[in-house]
């Protein structure tokens, strides 16, 4: 993709994509990593992201969707600012993952793939995240919290609330909104679409 072309992505990510595509014998092999990186930066795979990724690789948007919808880690609706992923696979399950997961649901008032009204948190039940030795484990964005009990849950959430500048009573300050990546329209979009579930749920 040439420099003049409009891109959704940061210059760094755009450059990374340019290199990634040339790395494989087949351009489309770059698809899955590109989708992951794009999701990390934009928050989710919007129509615009899908269309730009398709164009960069030279495949149809349909093909991008065929692949993207296969993976449950890729999402098509915005997640909360902090996406709480609770592992309930065997090791974690045996060590009480479901109690932890239930506590998250109670504290946040949302269920699987839900998102809190303020857009701060979303919750997901996920497959093994590779932290079995310290089960039960969760992942919040890219941070791990392990060897959990339900009692840990309020503290973890409070930690993120204060990180986002939200008072612990839950009343919303403007602090964290300023931290939302890229343009304001995107953050509005997040909230507008926040109720929906993932397409294949």
């Amino acid at each position: 993709m040439s420099d003049e072309t409009m891109t959704l992505f940061s210059p760094r990510l755009a450059a990374r994509f340019d290199a990634l595509i040339l790395k494989y014998p087949l351009r489309r092999s770059a698809l899955v990593p590109m989708l992951l990186y794009a999701q990390d930066e934009v928050g989710y795979l919007s129509d615009a992201v899908i269309s730009e990724v398709a164009e960069r690789i030279g495949i149809t948007e349909l093909e991008v969707r065929n692949v993207a919808t296969y993976y449950s880690m890729l999402r098509f609706k915005p997640a909360g600012k902090y996406n709480v992923q609770v592992c309930t696979n065997i090791s974690c399950m045996l060590r009480g993952a479901y109690e932890v997961y239930e506590r998250f649901q109670e504290e946040l008032g949302i269920a699987h793939k839900g998102i809190t009204a303020d857009g701060l948190f979303s919750l997901e039940e996920v497959e093994c995240i590779g932290a079995c030795c310290w089960a039960p484990a969760i992942q919040v964005n890219y941070e791990f919290h392990d060897e959990l009990t339900p009692e840990h849950v309020p503290g973890i959430l409070a930690g993120y609330r204060s990180k986002a500048g939200v008072p612990s009573d839950g009343s919303l300050s403007l602090g964290w909104k300023a931290g939302v990546p890229s343009d304001g329209s995107l953050s509005l979009g997040w909230k507008a679409q926040a109720e929906g579930n993932a397409p294949h749920a």
Binding site: T60, E61, L62, R65, N66, T69, H200
Partner: peptide, 18 residues
Amino acid sequence: VWALGVQNRGVSSVIAPN
């Protein structure tokens, strides 16, 4: 033409138009 694809997986797989 490549107008058809398959989305999602497993039991929820579905044929999808472009």
